[in-house]
Nucleic acid binder design. Structure first.
Lengths: 109, 109
DNA sequence: ATTCATCATAGCTCATTGGCTATATAAAAA
DNA sequence: TTTTTATATAGCCAATGAGCTATGATGAAT
């Protein structure tokens, strides 16, 4: 799997507000059951389950089964590719500004 | 405009691979015309223009008109809310971990 | 054994959106 | 002035996806 696919999955996964809110709650409040998450999600339980499945597939959460309930928790390390990507973009930006040749090239065109 | 709206716009804007590729090229290679971008985008010129419009609306690029061509360039500062968000999530994570650490320390005594 | 509680899956619908072609706009060239 | 070039806009279509309800699967409780 290419890194760009990982980035794509991350951006796509976090692009949905409901899904991002679920992930944020897990980051803020720690492990939660599907029921607890549903209670304040503003959408139905199947929708919550679906979103959690997508978050899991992106590596952003993990699940732990305990009896008949499933506990979800945030996997913060999964955000690393996103941080890397932004750093990379910032790096390109800076190197272009520090590179006199490119600067002159742009003034020349 | 709320910050969460900004984050939403950023994530949504960068979720599309074609759009993200355009932004990446502008970060890597600096200012480009629509024509230059279209030449390697793999999609038609109107599609490129549309994506650039969306990137502009999200504050990720700016445009400069020169004669009959439009030059686009990346506005890296627009990524700040994204960096802030990831930092915030990491912060919640860390503080919860520290709370747990403190709790365990107290239980240990 | 039966019922209840919890979560996941299936199937549907509607809105969004990314792609296209055709065309409008506007500047430069002929 | 007419034509060509560069970009933007309009309008269409097909695919995606986020929501719903209904139901399946499974563990706990009665």
């Amino acid at each position: 799997m290419l890194m760009s696919d990982t980035q794509d999955a991350l951006f796509k996964t976090l692009a949905d507000p409901t899904r991002r809110a679920l992930f944020e709650r897990l980051c803020r409040e720690g492990e939660k059951t599907v029921g607890a998450l549903t209670a304040r999600a503003g959408v139905s339980q199947p929708v919550v389950s679906k979103h959690l499945g997508i978050l899991k597939q992106a590596g952003l959460v993990r699940d732990r089964h305990e009896g008949r309930q499933t506990h979800y928790s945030a996997q913060l390390g999964a955000l690393a590719p996103l941080v890397d990507w932004t750093s990379e973009m910032a790096g390109f930006w800076q190197s272009r500004f520090n590179d006199l040749e490119d600067l002159l090239k742009r003034m020349d065109q």
